[in-house]
Every structure is written in structure tokens, then in C-alpha cells.
């Protein structure tokens, strides 16, 4: 069974067509990494999957439910999809624990005691059991991002979306977040990850999708897309990412 199915997805912002017909699926328990240059529509794709952005046309199925169906209860559907943002987006007025409990209580109607017990388990899962009472401003970027992961996990999502979860982090903090994500993947979480961490994609992803200009240029196992890309655009992109100081001559 596929957890995510996207059919002929288009998204326009006014005259700008950012997604030009995207088709792909993520099977249950799979990790799919989306790579591509800035502005290629990666974030927009992810945001269309949980309808933070309303697709212009096309269909999105998550966990068997068509989210693009106008009659679907979008709030109920979103509960099954966790999202982790580049800028963490923790609630700054709440402690780490409260960040993780508030939606459980307000949305899933769990009792305070139950929500806190779930939250403590998930904070321990991301290695932050001792930071439950800290406010986001008192945590490092890497710790904030891990709290954000715990916050999403506490809702028991069937699918986790990650939008460049390590791009806003200092290099020495990236590892902790990737470790947590690797562990999630091993536990069998279905994940759709936009990332520039090629080593992570190579090691963890079941499939890699390369996007450029609002379309999928190529996709396949990481060994192929990252290791032996077929398309020139993929090769150019990878050269830039893997060797940023290299002056690209843009020649064959």
C-alpha cells in the first residue's frame, strides 16, 4: 500500500507555474529524498502534500484518503501527516514539553497526563528527555529541530514530511538531527525528505527524486540518481552541491 500518491500535480502562484505535473508515490515504510536546485518547487511540493498550499490541479492521496477532495476534513487528514520545517517553527511561548502536548490535547483530546507521558517518550526518542521544561529560546537550533520532530511524532503520523530540516543549523548540529531521522527510518516511518545532505540521501533513502523547474527530471535508487545520474541537469546540480567551490564550466 502506498502512503502517498501524487497524480499530475500542478501549482501556480498567479502566472508563475511552480509545479508542472508531478507524479510519484511513496510506499509505506519508504524514505524518499527530494533534491533539486533552489526554486525548483521542492517546498511547494511538500506543502501540497499536507495542503498547506492548495494545488491548482491534480490529486494527492495520503494513507488512502484523497486530500484534494473538497469534502475531506482537512484537519483530520493533516493529523496523519507530520511536518518538520526548515525554521523549526516551535511555539516560542511554550516549553518543549508543552510544544509536544498542546496539539495532542487540543486536537486528539488526550488527557494532560496521557499527553505528557507521550511527550516525554517522544522527547526521549529524540534525545531530549532532560529539556522538557526549557523554552525554545533556551535550546540550540539542533535541539529545537529535534523538539519539532518529537512534536510531530506525538500525533502518531503515518507519514513525516521534512523540508530541509538541517539547512538552518550550524554544521556541528546537523549530525544530531540526521541521527534522529536515520533512527526513524530504521523504525519503519514513511518519510518524504527535502534535503541537500547527499550523504544522508545516499545512505537512508529508498528512492531519490531530482526536481528542476517544477518537474521531476529523474528518480530512482540513490546509487543511480546520486551515484550515476542519467541526465545532464542532475549531473550539473550534483557537481555544484558536492563540490561547491568548483567553478562550473557548464561544458560537456
Amino acid at each position: 500500500m502506498s502512503d502517498v500518491e501524487i497524480r499530475d500535480l500542478h501549482k501556480c502562484f498567479g502566472k508563475l507555474e511552480v509545479l508542472r505535473g508531478i507524479d510519484f508515490t511513496v510506499e509505506s515504510g519508504q524514505v524518499v529524498c527530494v533534491i533539486g536546485p533552489s526554486g525548483s518547487g521542492k517546498s511547494t511540493l511538500l506543502r501540497c502534500v499536507n495542503l498547506l498550499e492548495r494545488p491548482t490541479s491534480g490529486k494527492v492521496f495520503v494513507d488512502g484518503v484523497e486530500l484534494t477532495d473538497p469534502d475531506v476534513d482537512i484537519d483530520a487528514a493533516r493529523r496523519r501527516v507530520g511536518m518538520v520545517f526548515q525554521q523549526f517553527n516551535l511555539f516560542p511561548h511554550l516549553t518543549a514539553l508543552r510544544n509536544v502536548t498542546i496539539a495532542q490535547e487540543r486536537v486528539l483530546r488526550r488527557s494532560r497526563a496521557e499527553a505528557e507521558s507521550v511527550a516525554r517518550t517522544d522527547l526521549a526518542r529524540v534525545g531530549l528527555a532532560d529539556k522538557a521544561d526549557a523554552y525554545p529560546a533556551q535550546l540550540s537550533g539542533g535541539q529545537q529541530q529535534r523538539v519539532a520532530i518529537a512534536r510531530a511524532l506525538a500525533m502518531n503520523p503515518a507519514l513525516m514530511l521534512f523540508d530541509e530540516p538541517t539547512s538552518a543549523l550550524d554544521p556541528e548540529l546537523v549530525g544530531d538531527v540526521l541521527t534522529v531521522m536515520r533512527q526513524l527510518a530504521e523504525e519503519g516511518m514513511t518519510m518524504l525528505v527535502v534535503t541537500h545532505e547527499m550523504a544522508f540521501a545516499r545512505e537512508v533513502a529508498d528512492r531519490v527524486v531530482f526536481m528542476d523547474g517544477g518537474t521531476i527530471v529523474e528518480e530512482g535508487p540513490p546509487g543511480q540518481v546520486i551515484g550515476a545520474p542519467r541526465h545532464e541537469r542532475t549531473r550539473t546540480f550534483l557537481r555544484r552541491v558536492l563540490n561547491p567551490t568548483h567553478v562550473d564550466t557548464d561544458g560537456a
Binding site: 499536507n50 498547506l52 484537519d75 483530520a76 493533516r78 493529523r79 501527516v81 507530520g82 511536518m83 520545517f85 525554521q87 517553527n89 516551535l90 511555539f91 516560542p92 511561548h93 498542546i102 496539539a103 487540543r106 486536537v107 486528539l108 519539532a148 512534536r151 510531530a152 500525533m155
Partner: peptide, 27 residues
């Protein structure tokens, strides 16, 4: 209040008004 706050709340399944009351208005 940064837009990401509302988006994070909505991504957790909170309806608009709930997100306003619990997340945006306190800030």
C-alpha cells in the same frame, strides 16, 4: 506573529480558530 506559527499549528491538525486561540493570539 510569523506565518510559520500558524502553519506549524495547522500541520498538527489544528483548525484555524483553534490555532489562532492556542498559538497565534497568545504571542
Amino acid at each position: 506573529v510569523p506565518k510559520g506559527q500558524m502553519e506549524a499549528a495547522r500541520s498538527l491538525g489544528m483548525p484555524y480558530m483553534r490555532a489562532m486561540i492556542s498559538i497565534v493570539i497568545p504571542q
